[in-house]
Design a protein around this nucleic acid. Sequence first.
DNA 1: TAACATACAGACAGTTTGTATGTAAAGGCA
DNA 2: TGCCTTTACATACAAACTGTCTGTATGTTA
Lengths: 191, 191
Amino acid sequence: MARSNKERTEATRLALIEAARRLFVEKGYAETATPDIVAEAGVTRGALYHHFEDKKALFRAVLEREGEAVAVHIEGVALKGASPRQALLLGASAYFDAMAIAGRTRLLLLEAPAVLGLESVVAIDRENTESTLKTGLSNFLGAAAGAATLQALTDMLSAAFDRAAIAIETGADRAIYEKAIAGLLDGLVRA
Amino acid sequence: MARSNKERTEATRLALIEAARRLFVEKGYAETATPDIVAEAGVTRGALYHHFEDKKALFRAVLEREGEAVAVHIEGVALKGASPRQALLLGASAYFDAMAIAGRTRLLLLEAPAVLGLESVVAIDRENTESTLKTGLSNFLGAAAGAATLQALTDMLSAAFDRAAIAIETGADRAIYEKAIAGLLDGLVRA
DNA sequence: TAACATACAGACAGTTTGTATGTAAAGGCA
DNA sequence: TGCCTTTACATACAAACTGTCTGTATGTTA
């Protein structure tokens, strides 16, 4: 079976990323050894270090894939004709849907900050979910809030959503969190 | 110089914890090797593994010390005669003061979840800051909010405070975040 | 088809972690 | 005070892991 180089590369990279994802989710980044990853992927360590600079780069590849999937899911929800308030609440709900995929909270919220450092995670976040939330909040609050305040609220609400996603995954009632979020948002415009 | 066993133990444990704290803050948990820690502490690896089960246990000791210090600082602020609202805002401000100690955000918010796992961190949090925030919120909101809603709000606001502490450490204007927090809280009771 | 580049495979060296064994100092007891 | 046990280390050791280096086979290009 003759495969082109592009096909080979794509296949091995994908196998490595998917195997790594499984193991990182199951045992965490630090406890996952590269021999285990390549065994799971059906390749050798030579292939791993050919395609990725090091173990951390492989983790970053897993993470980027994951963050992108979350962003795609959120942007995929139909907001046509929704009020700014509805748009925010729908966005939050879509975020919870996206984060309900097994392992996502662990990868994105627990491991990533420690493995990649704060800057990288903030950068990935900024590219994906943060801007969506920020414009949503801006539409909701109107021009009343200054840029700095808008940034602060975006930042803190984003963190609140993250924690809510973790709580929901560990068994908390999702409806309660969504109601609490609605309460927080409504309070902001009842000033 | 003859020292009792209790003195020796206390001295070496402290030296190890303080040395480990410095290196964990500087380079992170994973990048810090035990030979470096013991060199910095002026002891040998034998001493480390005599007093701590493993490297993770040493990290846990560092973390418990840190979390306790934060809790002590927060509980130390005078709330006599303060309104529930003032108490919450003063508590938030005290939390930012406490988290401004160098390395604390990295240890408590970035490394700990990945190294110790979510449960341990939640447990440490629950013992220290969370109950304070929860009762503060309860006083502020009155009996209107149900137990589940109170828990959800505590959870999310706690996360918001954490992210705010990180933002402040990385140069954001603290006053903006404190104002935003006041806005969020006030909105909750203007329903 | 000859030359080159890419995609691996396997061996290797340097670290690192936890353990096991040995030693010296402290503590309890006759 | 002398003896015995326990505690607090120090050092050597084995296993595992990461990243690199060298070699080979397969695709690609001139």
